[in-house]
Simulated scan of single mutants.
Amino acid sequence: MPNQAPTQASPPRALRWAVAGSVIVMIAAGGLFYYASKMAAAKRQANHDEVLVTIHSHSCEPNALTVPAGRASFRIVNRSDRAVEWEILDGVLVIEERENIAPGLSQVINANLLPGDYAITCGLLSNPRGTLHVTPTAASDAAAKARPSMVAFVGPLSEFRVYLSSQSTALIKAVTALEQSIEAGDLSQAQALYLPARAAYQRLAPAAQRLGELDNSINARADYFEKREQDPAFVGFHRLEYALFQQRDLDGLAPLTQRLLTDVTTLKQQLLAQSLLPEQLVSIVVRNLNSIGDVHASSGEEERYSHSDLNGFAANLDAARKVVELLRPLLSKSAADLLPKIDSALAALDAQLNGFKVNDAYASYDSVSAEQRKQIADKAKALAAALDGIDPALGLCGL
């Protein structure tokens, strides 16, 4: 019987699957490589306008940049011997930054920039800062009329925080002087120093009144207590006002002034610890002005013992004026037609109050007639109404 050729064994099934898998992996790898190449090419095309900035040990090169408004890309190359950061600054505010750029490497910063002049950091904090000038474009001019982003409010809110800090410091200083005059037993001096201390508080009142419990300790009138002036819980400014101007007696006031000093010191801490939303910046001032218009101007009850209501109204107006000042740049861009109405209302209330000044001091409120009080109330409400238009104009309604 002839010998038969041996039958060739077919590859094991596992081997066939392995070969097929290798082919699939190769195809997938090729596809991924092609995709990555296309993405890299697209990225290079998109970044063909990158601005190159080289950081050396003690400077940037170039140190003065000019770019058009809108999206800009900066490639930061670190030629120094340590990891560095690069920042774009608008005043004290960081607009964009890239941290920890390693020596010999580069990173890209993308920023949407508004027209204006900025500073740039150049590695070490001790290094001279560079400049970045951003020129306006047709697109940036159109965007300036649109609703600002929340970033636009960082500056006004930060500056309002500075205002709260400085006014709180002034309040603490004024209350300290008042305390010292009371401890010295000088009634006339204490009466004179009460007025600037009270005015310092009124400049903070729109924000301070958000802190209900603390504000009650500092600012509550006798009406809010069961035994009115005789209630042990009646403390703060109005308790001192009652003693200084109605009782005309300093006896027992030292602990009360010490308590007030503690409270206003705590007030500063809490005001700076609280966050304020953009839409609250105007609303707290509007609420304060409406209180003048609806209650305080007509009744004269707020400063019933010293009759120094006009001092308080003027201080409240200072706070309103500050908020307008902080928001004016935004309003000039987005609601320029609203500014004349606001400025007119500010000037009207200011003129009304200044009409009661004699030798740089406000008249006693018990000398202000009912008709004059109504005029003050009307102008306070008119200013509140004008300010009430700010949030809609800046797109903050409903936030």
Rank of each mutant, 00 (worst) to 15 (best):
E213N: 09
C397E: 15
S10L: 14
Y201E: 05
V23T: 03
E85N: 13
L267Q: 10
N78L: 04
Q246E: 10
K145F: 14
T135A: 02
D231P: 00
F33M: 08
V235W: 00
A29R: 04
L187V: 00
V282T: 06
Y163I: 14
G123K: 05
L353G: 09
R82E: 06
I76M: 02
R75C: 02
S217C: 04
A320Y: 00
G185I: 04
A207C: 03
P2S: 10
V235Q: 00
L399W: 15
T169I: 11
L260S: 03
Q269N: 10
V285Q: 06
R44P: 00
Q270T: 05
A385V: 11
A393H: 04
D186K: 13
Q375I: 12
L399Y: 15
P340F: 12
L125S: 07
D378G: 08
A42W: 12
S126Y: 09
A143Q: 06
R228N: 10
K381V: 09
L338V: 02
V23A: 04
L346I: 09
L15A: 10
S166G: 10
I27N: 12
P62F: 01
Q372G: 01
A144S: 07
N216F: 08
G123D: 06
R248T: 08
Y35A: 13
E325M: 08
A315C: 01
